[in-house]
């Protein structure tokens, strides 16, 4: 399990996707339930990085969400 902090963004690409933008500039697509009201808020995500693919077609690794909370 990994703990990652960042800003929660909704990216309007394809059907739309939640992305965790970190301080280093990485944008990890999130796989799992996200509270829509938390858009653009600082969050902490506990999850697992997976070497998967997504329709976001993003270069950064997907983060499978186990738990998410406001920071």
């Amino acid at each position: 399990m990994t703990r990652v902090e960042g800003t929660l963004r909704f990216v309007d690409l394809g059907a739309g996707q939640w992305v965790l933008q970190t301080a280093s500039g990485a944008r990890h697509p999130l796989d799992g339930a996200v509270d829509r009201g938390w858009a653009d808020r600082e969050v902490v995500v506990h999850g697992t990085f997976v070497d998967g693919l997504g329709f976001g077609v993003s270069a950064d690794r997907t983060l499978q969400v186990h738990r998410i909370a406001l920071r």
Binding site: Q17, D31, F55
Partner: peptide, 14 residues
């Protein structure tokens, strides 16, 4: 169908 409802999938699935 190789991607989940949140839009992600594995290389094995693809």
């Amino acid at each position: 169908k190789v991607l989940s409802g949140s839009g992600s999938g594995s290389s094995a699935q693809v």
